[in-house]
Design a protein around this nucleic acid. Structure first.
Lengths: 212, 212
DNA sequence: ACCTGAACACCGTTCAAGT
DNA sequence: ACCTGAACACCGTTCAAGT
């Protein structure tokens, strides 16, 4: 249970701590990140870690901060503004899915706004290009952001607890699909997140751009 | 730190435990629900609780189960199917907001599907009335459910950590609002959840019903 | 059937002490 | 400036023992 990567280290760095913490989180999630396990992994006393990062909470803060900073830009693609908005949403979801524990951690820390700043900037631009102005435009941007983050949160959770207590089949079938076997089948099959996400965002964007 | 409600209790009941647990969660959230605090609150030994509920995890499971069961029906209102779908979404959000810790607990336990069964049934009905069939209908139902749950999750979190690290103002203003002071102001003001929610759901539903 | 205290293995964190 | 062990106050859970 000592350091497994890299050569002998002269003295412990704040970055060493962050690296080891990141590795632990990546493998077993934030709950498995224990100050004591971390110390064991680094081959130091628990209290050394406190000297470098303050405490567990600020360690996690720093970790999130660093991960967010490394995310990379979001560049829209597509011809129409609607297409480009959808592509931003998909890129954002992709980023979040690539760092499975990040969403929850960002979410718990209330850093959502900061985290989605690049995506938000892109969205502002595209929404403007689509002709929305003022409060309507702001609302559209936020609607998409909430949609994406919310979706990924729900989706991530579905994956973590794979066997929903009542299986999808048994849960849906009774009176739901009224004379519509195709609907019944689709419900029983369970959601297909990729399709569902794209369809949802597209519908939302269409609705937002259409006006009321 | 002993029992504060009701008269002397002859012997500890599983329901007593659940009641006390519910009270603790209601006041300070699930994290504050400690087996030892709970025992203190009930005036019993910690180990008695284990006899009645197994362990902390199943205690929380039971708590969620009971709360969900007590939620009450969702009855759509409005004239057009679109209006009725929006009203289901709003009713669902209302239910979730009335039990501030419920969403997160349900979410963590992967009981989302079960929890939204009543709302889902109503949605299936309305979506069908709106003319959607088969896989399209199923997708619409799920899109709305994901939208509502995701929104409430994001929203709840925003409330828990009120001061976003960079304030909304400073975060948004730089290049975002291009020659659109009203947009800049709206972004700086921060979201108005009630309005945003309604607008989002309406847009999503419009988009879903419009077809692609 | 129900309740108890003692004990175990884990936490995060502080602090005085070392180099 | 950096690292250490000891200690504190908390956890969840098990178990043998009581009534």
């Amino acid at each position: 249970m000592s350091r497994q990567t890299g050569p002998a280290r002269p003295s412990l760095t704040r970055d060493d701590v962050l690296d080891a913490a990141a590795a632990l989180v990546k493998q077993h999630g934030p709950r498995a990140l224990t100050m004591r396990k971390l110390a064991a992994e680094l081959g130091t006393a628990v209290t050394s870690i406190y000297w470098h990062v303050g405490n567990r909470e600020s360690l996690l803060d720093a970790l999130v901060e660093r991960t967010v900073a490394d995310l990379g830009a979001i560049t829209p693609g597509g011809r129409t503004p609607a297409q480009r908005i959808v592509s931003v949403a998909r890129a954002l979801r992709r980023q979040l899915r690539d760092h499975p524990h990040l969403v929850a951690m960002v979410h718990e820390r209330g850093l959502t706004e900061r985290m989605f700043q690049p995506a938000a900037q892109a969205l502002v631009h595209e929404v403007h290009a689509a002709g929305l102005r003022g409060a309507r435009a702001a609302e559209a941007v936020r609607a998409v952001l909430f949609q994406v983050v919310g979706f990924v949160l729900v989706e991530r959770n579905r994956e973590r607890s794979p066997a929903q207590h009542p299986g999808d089949q048994e849960l849906w079938d009774v009176p739901a699909a009224e004379h519509d076997p195709a609907l019944a089948r689709a419900l029983a099959r369970g959601p297909q997140p990729e399709r569902l996400f794209t369809a949802s965002v597209r519908a939302l964007v269409d609705g937002l751009l259409a006006g009321d």
